[in-house]
């Protein structure tokens, strides 16, 4: 939980498009398939905004626990779940 994560800036582009937050892989080997982009829901976007390459994951979880309803355990599971998904797809990197 001391790890620090950040968007893979050279490999993905994050855009807000007509109210939808999307992540577009632009480098080879990032994401799954050529044509795929990723859409983050409101919760996902809130997590994404905090993965700034400075905050430790524990701090991210703490902040979200204050901002969102839900038990600390639920929020921890959500955040780590999302981070795992993004890491697997190389959309974020560990700093």
């Amino acid at each position: 939980m001391n790890a620090v994560y950040a968007p893979a800036e050279d490999d993905v582009v994050a855009r807000e498009l007509h109210g939808e937050f999307i992540i577009i892989p632009i480098s080879s080997g990032v994401g799954d398939l050529e044509d795929e982009i990723f859409s983050l829901n409101e919760t996902g976007k809130a997590v994404w905004d905090k993965l700034d390459g400075k905050k430790k994951l524990e701090e991210v979880i703490s902040e979200l626990t204050v901002e969102f309803e839900g038990s600390a355990e639920e929020i921890r599971n959500d955040v780590t779940g999302l981070v795992e998904e993004l890491l697997k797809r190389k959309i974020i990197v560990e700093n």
Binding site: D35, E36, N41, T43, E69, G70, I75, D78, E85
Partner: peptide, 14 residues
């Protein structure tokens, strides 16, 4: 939070 189902939705660009 707590609704695990869809943090990330994969879509086709087109």
């Amino acid at each position: 939070m707590g609704k695990k189902s869809s943090y990330v939705v994969t879509k086709n660009l087109n």
